[in-house]
Design a protein around this nucleic acid. Sequence first.
RNA 1: AGCCCCGUAGUGUAGCGGUCUAGCAUGGGAGACUCUGGAUCUCCCGUCACCAGUUCAAAUCUGGUCGGGGCUACCA
Length: 556
Amino acid sequence: MEGSDPRKTDFIREIIDEDIRADKHGGRVHTRFPPEPNGYLHIGHAKSICLNFGIAEEYGGKCNLRFDDTNPSREEEEYVESIKEDVKWLGFDWEDRLYFASDYFGRMYDLSVDLVRNGNAYVDDLTGEEIRQYRGNLTTPGRESPFRDRPVEENLDLLERMRKGEFKDGEKVLRARIDMAHPNMNMRDPVIYRILKASHHNTGDKWCIYPMYDWAHGLEDSIEDITHSLCTLEFENHRPLYDWFLDHLDVYHPQQIEFARLNLTFTVMSKRKLLQLVENKLVTGWNDPRMPTISGMRRRGYPASSIREFCSRIGVAKINSTISFELLEHCVREDLNRTSPRSMGVLDPLKVTIENLPDDHEDLMEVKNNPEDPGAGTRSVPFSNELFIERSDFLEDPPRKFFRLSPGKEVRLRNAYLVTCTDVVKEGGEVVELICRADLDSRGGDAPDGRKVKGTLHWVSAKHAVEAEVRLYGKLFTVEDPLGVEGDFTDHLDPGSLNVLNGCKVEPSVREKRVGASFQFERLGYFMIDPDTTDDRLVINRTITLRDSWAKIQKK
RNA sequence: AGCCCCGUAGUGUAGCGGUCUAGCAUGGGAGACUCUGGAUCUCCCGUCACCAGUUCAAAUCUGGUCGGGGCUACCA
């Protein structure tokens, strides 16, 4: 992954540099990306993936993919597969280091026995509700559980029986024995194990007690010899606990470092909220092209490299921030402009007949595939006397600075001919066809006398055109911060965020493209072939429009 | 209210005591160029939250104030 930027620096890389200088881990750098398999990955995860895998790459270290599957009640195999696919697609490789927290359940259990043995944990019979009450609140200290001082032997026995399944869900928990008056709520004797008689996607029914995050996560890092455990800011208050557990066991102690999670305007970034959109069928699925999920962006046509570039540009810091959606879009356009072959397609066709060409006229225009990339070669585009142009490229009564077609005006048909509109055919007031006269000396699009022709239109030969369904996507929400305004966030979904166009006419070469292929329809934007495409149905997604300065002018 | 974290242009960041009349990107504005009103190029748009110290010198160090965020799940 060659980043164009000279040398990224951020506070995390500074810490790592310092650790290497101090020979803290013998120069080793080992990170991990630890998703919980309870939803699809989104662009926020991409930030973490790029950070963790990127750092490992830069420092010649390693990065593990580890599923943090400690809660059987909401984790599914489907999510495991999608996450693997998304990480791979983003361009990262965990090699042979695919791990599951559930693989460590045995080790974790043994370690918890050590904790009990040393008097640092106890089995509590309080109910969930009671535990909550005993915990106190932000300003008042908690009270100690009456079971807190059980003898070690009794705790050992009870823990063993918890594991064996002798108790019902919620009947007992194992708790750390820390300090019920600690100003950090996380330190008020946090729960280590809870009883959950649920089948686990990986361990089946082997376990009926499952470790809590705070207990499990540090151990996972420790077991995997992680050097720098990078997580988001909301775990800052958990770090003392992360450290406490590791300090009270005879195990290797990695370092947790927190950074700010990604927020993006015009979207929501919580798995719970995204799940809500999916379950309530407000979108077509996790991979709906309007979703901020990796799979959604993939289907939308965002290149993986543009997402990586975006993640590199936003940087890593501890400031809570919201990145404007435009930056992501900029990265997508920049990438696609460089790499996408061009073609022509007409979304809203208006028929044009060239009056000075015979009915059976056919011709092949040799056209550059990508003006940005001479190596991309050329292709032949069929031309005839009957064409389609974009309806919005004609106005009977044009405003000033309208460089397109109108009665009597001359424009260029891209790579074809200069044409002048000589007549307008209407049916019931609606324009149904234009009659144009071509300058036959301008074949290829160059004016024979060097005269300036300001407007250039895209076109498709009517008799050669391929029909397509084109799906136009816009922002999912109408407001920058769907969670920060009145009402439920779903109230602010944009009903116009999906616009399906049928009967679009595209040049024949588009039919040859594979599913997933990106290309530009000149003057319109970047598109990609949707997986819904079949032998007799061509479905195209619009990834993003071109920057449109005409639209800007119109607004004024 | 207790604990933790943060505060540089609209947005996101660089900056690690002088080389900062604060760099870059994005965004916005103006123009040039152009067979995509695309791309490209040029120019313009910021008194480092505030106050007090330390220092010859502070965006950078110290203290305080103000502002923002997080934490009271048998979730992660």
